[in-house]
Amino acid sequence: MEAAARTAQIALTFWLVVSDGSALVPIILAVVVTATKAVVKFAALRPNGLIQDPPIDIEKFERLSVANELKSNGLWIWLSVLSGLMFNAFDRWFVGAQLGSAVLVAYAACTQIAQMPHALVAAAGQTLGPWAAKRRDRLAQVDVRRNIRKVLVIATAAAALPSLLLLLVLEPLLSLWISTEFAVEHLAMARGMTLAFCLLSLNVPAYFLLLGLGRVRSSTLLVAVAGVVFVVGCLLLPPSLPGFVFMKGLFAALTISLVVLLLMLSRARSKW
């Protein structure tokens, strides 16, 4: 559902831009897509919802019910979302305030196109959460932990592919989307942003695997530290586009610690 919704939103947004539609229309489209996903997800959580889990032991269900999971992990997930907000919004505020609206427009446009591969990777990566959760009670088994590491390595490598493919077509895509002049002038910044989001994509499999295995607090703290470093760096560095792009890449590089955390935990059963 996530992959289909995000792909449709991106396609419709490109179509609206090419057709010279009102800027309000893509905003309304984003709100409608987000609201539709929320309705479907809440419907799926109902006992008689759209998605039915296989029969499970009642005592285990009561112990690991949706309500209990939200109580124990909801706050940490919320903090993780705030950390993501730091990465996705704070730098734009700084760019607009320090470098002006004209530079902000170019920066935001390059960010939008650079983050598309990460959005698709994040949508696909959500499937790893339930996959890991089903193995949560069998982590004492060596083969289960070995399988988790194998999936992590393969998924992490695959997560980099969309951004690397975007790099190959970035200049003509910018020319088609905005203009040839824009593509030539801002190609270096767009490439830097694409590489930053490529690094960020590498943490997606580890993040959702840790989420499914119940390590929400650990993963949230790591992302929160990266968010704080990102904001502080944006405030301290001299205002410049290369500086903000560098901070994007630093945030993404710091979040790769999620991969290291999962590899360490999967090798030592006692740490779970």
Rank of each mutant, 00 (worst) to 15 (best):
Met1Trp: 08
Met1Phe: 09
Ala4His: 04
Ala5Met: 05
Ala11Gly: 03
Phe14Thr: 02
Trp15Ala: 00
Leu16Phe: 02
Ser19Asn: 00
Ser22Gly: 01
Val32Tyr: 00
Val33Cys: 04
Thr36His: 07
Val40Trp: 14
Ala44Asn: 08
Ala44Cys: 06
Ala44Met: 09
Asn48Leu: 02
Asn48Ala: 04
Val66Asn: 08
Leu70Cys: 04
Lys71Cys: 06
Ser80Leu: 09
Gly84Ile: 01
Gly84Val: 02
Phe90Lys: 07
Asp91Met: 13
Trp93Val: 13
Trp93Tyr: 15
Phe94Met: 14
Ala97Phe: 14
Ala97Met: 15
Ala102Gly: 10
Ala102Ser: 15
Ala109Cys: 06
Cys110Gly: 06
Thr111Met: 12
Ala114Asn: 08
Met116Val: 12
His118Asp: 14
Val121Gln: 08
Ala122Trp: 12
Gln126Val: 11
Pro130Asn: 07
Ala133Ser: 15
Leu139Lys: 05
Leu139Asp: 05
Ala140Asp: 13
Arg146Trp: 14
Ile154Leu: 13
Ala160Lys: 09
Leu161Glu: 05
Leu165Glu: 01
Glu171Lys: 05
Ser175Thr: 04
Ala183Trp: 01
Ala183Cys: 01
Glu185Leu: 01
His186Asn: 10
Leu187Ser: 00
Ala188Cys: 02
Ala188Val: 10
Met189Arg: 07
Arg191Phe: 05
Met193Trp: 08
Ala196Arg: 09
Asn203Glu: 11
Pro205Val: 02
Pro205Asp: 03
Leu210Trp: 08
Gly212Ala: 04
Leu213Lys: 06
Arg217Met: 13
Ser218Lys: 13
Ser218Phe: 10
Leu222Asn: 11
Leu237Gln: 13
Ser240Arg: 13
Pro242Met: 06
Gly243Asn: 09
Val245Thr: 13
Lys248Tyr: 12
Ser257Phe: 01
Val259Phe: 09
Leu262Asn: 05
Leu265Ser: 04
Ser266Val: 07
Ala268Phe: 08
Trp272Asn: 07
